[in-house]
Design a protein around this nucleic acid. Structure first.
Lengths: 324, 324
DNA sequence: GCCGGTTTCGCTCAGATGAGCAGATCCACT
DNA sequence: AGTGGATCTGCTCATCTGAGCGAAACCGGC
């Protein structure tokens, strides 16, 4: 029979009476024939040994401890970590992932709303995540905000509207205006990109994007589920090649490796939108990244200084903090 | 967008800072621009709303709240409920069930050891559970205890030793003696039972059993997994007939229905061992019942006053307390 | 606008709790 | 046995926290 340290057992009994029966340490001392100081120490010991688990079960709960550790480890200005508590109530991993996506987007919307100073101009990328954030924002989240798209958005397979939707919604709900970037995200030839870029309308948008007072973007994993594959910008073969070359994902359409460097210079040269250096230099760059598929790219984003603020879920945060 | 009551959200934020960051309510007030009393109330509210879940994670943890409710609801002298915390670490329901069985047996062994006055004579039944308790008892748990079997034990398919083992082990570890009941549990004819019962050796054991200062027994479900089927006392058909007649399980070999009454008078008349009335009249009757298959019989045991002390697992306890 | 009822607020005060400290106890090694 | 170091114990005291209580704010009906 494996014996459990009798002090450990006592501390469990004390903790039961304290937390479940909410008796005072005095009363517990009486019951267990201990001084109340001993009881206090036993409970402290139980806590220190991790036998007492306190969980805040609420869809909008956050994890301040993880947030602080993220800030410290990666030198972030701010970090928001939404709790995964209560996820077992959802059946199926897919449903759970959707819920976490939604919680994260909600947290991002709230963060944007509460951000002070409220951004005069906000550069946004596009994709599922940014779209979700736009949805969660409430009417009047800002009083006049100039929203600018920061990377090419015209899709080859869908109408431009879909990608533009997010920026427009964010602007509309913030009583402001949206400036769209009328260009594909990835061009076939470098020259085409240069040509489009030099067009006055596009150049003006890019200039506006470069001068935004804050950025809001997500990141995508480098795999067949990437929006760039779905949008037709990249074939499955090209994606496989990127992965083979070390790509872990993309930020504003630019594919990067684990160290945060551009993977394919040629591809990057054909990609239209602000450059990663501009993002790295931004005073406020909010990355919203959630989901198990994005752990790797999330690590790269925070590790290579692409964002100043990270909004993510608990699992991703734990993964990011997990050593290395 | 479904809005969450802003007070509710505040209470979550306050709770996060209080429980995760362990700040004082004063500090939290400073952070959230609230008075410390408001913070206290918010945290209390979060607790009351059930957003704060405090769990004691330890294999030997108990559930004093459930224990008290069991005592109150069923008028028990005592109740021990072992926690299911940490069971997800086991893979498979079977492994989890084994773990709970073991935890419950451990708790029973501990209870016996700490029972005051220590029983001079202890009547025991036999089966998996009692065997497990015997295993978990430690050397010297008592100083001279007279252990008596309270129901027939000679198996038709295995050697008598197996069923006797538990009683012998309990006696040996308690520096005492074991008195075995040298008879099958269920006879084929009433007359045989009477004949055996009138034999002096058997009669003396039964008399000793009747005079025990405490009883320790378990209960079995009425289904094909019953030890009485495995032991060969009952055929699958007989068991099916018992179930059809309303049997929910057996206690010391006697099958009872939901209200605690004997299901089959003839069968009961062929069963050798102490009578249920004797158990109901006992000053200390400790029932050790754990596992999902035994919820129904557990309910019957406590509801019909067959035990004064129940030792069980959290799930069974919850089931027992679940209304009705 | 006014008024009664209800809720919320800030506060007092007493009880509960944790930090820190000196004495007691234990333990290993001579 | 004797000794030095480490740990444990019970205590004082300062701080933290929850109950209870008037005062203020709020709300709906006139």
């Amino acid at each position: 029979m494996i014996d459990v340290d009798s002090d450990e057992l006592l501390s469990i009994r004390a903790a039961e009476l304290y937390y479940e029966e909410n008796k005072t340490q005095d009363e517990i001392g009486l019951i267990l024939s201990l001084t109340r100081w001993k009881v206090g120490r036993l409970i402290a010991q139980a806590k220190a040994s991790g036998f007492i688990r306190i969980e805040i079960v609420h869809p909008r709960a956050r994890r301040p401890v993880l947030e602080r550790r993220l800030r410290e480890k990666f030198g972030l200005q701010d970090a928001i970590v939404v709790s995964t508590a209560g996820l077992d109530a959802f059946d199926g991993e897919a449903a759970a992932a959707v819920e976490m996506q939604s919680r994260t987007a909600h947290a991002a919307a709230e963060y944007l709303t509460l951000l002070r100073p409220s951004p005069r101009s906000l550069g946004v990328s596009w994709g599922h995540t940014v779209h979700a954030v736009a949805q969660q924002l409430r009417q009047g989240w800002a009083h006049g905000v100039s929203v600018v798209q920061i990377n090419g958005s015209v899709s080859l397979t869908r109408s431009a509207g879909v990608a533009a939707q997010a920026a427009v919604t964010i602007a509309q709900k913030g009583a402001g205006t949206a400036t769209l970037l009328p260009s594909p995200a990835i061009l076939e030839r470098r020259e085409t990109r240069l040509a489009i870029e030099s067009d006055r309308t596009v150049a003006q948008v890019l200039a506006a994007a470069a001068g935004a007072s804050a950025y809001l973007f997500s990141a995508g994993p480098a795999d067949e589920s990437s929006v760039h594959v779905a949008s037709g910008y990249l074939s499955l073969e090209e994606m496989a090649a990127l992965v083979a070359a070390g790509a872990v994902g993309d930020v504003v359409g630019r594919f990067i490796d684990a160290s945060g460097g551009v993977v394919d210079d040629d591809l990057d040269d054909r990609t239209l939108g602000i450059r990663l250096a501009q993002l790295r230099a931004a005073a406020v760059a909010i990355a919203v990244i959630s989901g198990p598929a994005k752990h790797e790219i999330a690590r790269t984003v925070v590790a290579s200084g692409l964002c100043t603020v990270l909004i993510t879920d608990e699992n991703t945060a734990l993964e990011l903090l997990d050593q290395t």
